[in-house]
Design a protein around this nucleic acid. Structure first.
Lengths: 190, 190
DNA sequence: CTAATCCTGTGACAATCGTCACAAAATTAT
DNA sequence: ATAATTTTGTGACGATTGTCACAGGATTAG
């Protein structure tokens, strides 16, 4: 829980009392590689704080996996729409490596938030961070070419480029596997 | 303010008392066409509830406008990252038509939120809606081709396709103006 | 260690897209 | 109403991308 506490302190003011109040909403869980954190068709009632390892969200379309996000250490993974609205998730979240997460239970989190403004503020900040991240990646597609998007990731999210395989990165960047391979070749030779 | 009140009620429980408490944070403003709601380089300290008309956010890159979002009646427009973090905005928000907005002032909104859990919840819901929307459009690029993205907009956001000109829509869909014109031609002839 | 599986690179070719250029159509301003 | 401006359509052409196919390399499972 040490990493989580540090993470929380980096986001917002947080007293020891709030931390105690938050405990009932938290649980640790280990996932094996390829184990699901969230299944398509299920309702997302959790926020997943990633303590170690990483996971991805993906849609299954015509039998192919289309990756829409990667979540690493100190990220919060969730389906923000399903979590907020209670609707079924249209995508999956799956561990890409052995993964350790701290799970925030929605109901218990809301109960705790009512008892502490700091917990309330924490929740708001998590959602805001999530929104900023979505905006960032959404903007990439409108401003840049596929090649520029790869550049951007290499500069701003080098960890992602290093840890995620080319095949996995391709759908995230909105191009075919082969195209990403050729882009990389063009880039390195220049 | 009638529309705003309806909008709030559609999102969350909201007592008359909360409504009264919220008033000091609100102000109405009319914008002319091409007037800025938010300027690049400025800090975003407002949420803009769009009462009538519509606006867009865009980056200015190499002298060209790259549109990243459109906000219509009953939408909240803002730079969620700048609003939350206090950093300068990297993009502009500009009225595309004569526009009437209700502006939420950040400082006063936070003050009001401390006095009412319902206002607090409203703020959280607005951010969540914003995050969902970003996620929706971000996903489009990873799952679909340019043609499919246009299809999606026509089905799920017909108002946008109707009200926004082709040139404006193009950068939002991540393609050149000419390409969008040809995609539309292909589509209608099939 | 060996076999099976997965990942990456690459060739070929057609489809799509970006860019430049210009004309027609639509909209806006005076 | 007329002129000015903006928006849209389209041709040409080169660049980029998707798709199919296959081979070599890396990784994983047993």
């Amino acid at each position: 829980m040490d990493n989580l506490l540090k993470y929380i302190h980096s986001l917002t003011e947080f007293s020891e009392e709030s931390w105690e109040l938050l405990q009932p909403a938290l649980s640790k869980k280990q996932y094996k590689k390829n184990e699901f954190l969230l299944h398509e068709g299920h309702i997302c009632n959790s926020l997943f704080y990633i303590d170690s390892g990483y996971c991805k969200s993906y849609y299954e379309i015509d039998g192919a996996q289309k990756n829409t996000a990667f979540f690493f250490e100190n990220d919060i993974a969730t389906n923000i729409n399903s979590f907020g609205s209670g609707e079924k998730s249209e995508f999956n979240i799956i561990a890409c490596e052995p993964l350790a997460a701290v799970i925030f239970d929605k109901q218990k989190l809301f109960k705790a938030a009512k008892q502490s403004n700091e917990i309330e503020a924490l929740g708001r900040n998590c959602i805001r961070m999530f929104a900023s991240k979505q905006e960032e990646f959404s903007t990439l597609f409108k401003l840049y070419s596929a090649q520029d998007r790869l550049n951007y990731l290499e500069v701003n999210h080098p960890d992602m480029v290093q840890r995620v395989s080319l095949s996995q990165l391709a759908s995230f960047l909105g191009v075919a596997r082969e195209t990403l391979s050729r882009i990389r070749k063009r880039r390195t030779s220049v």
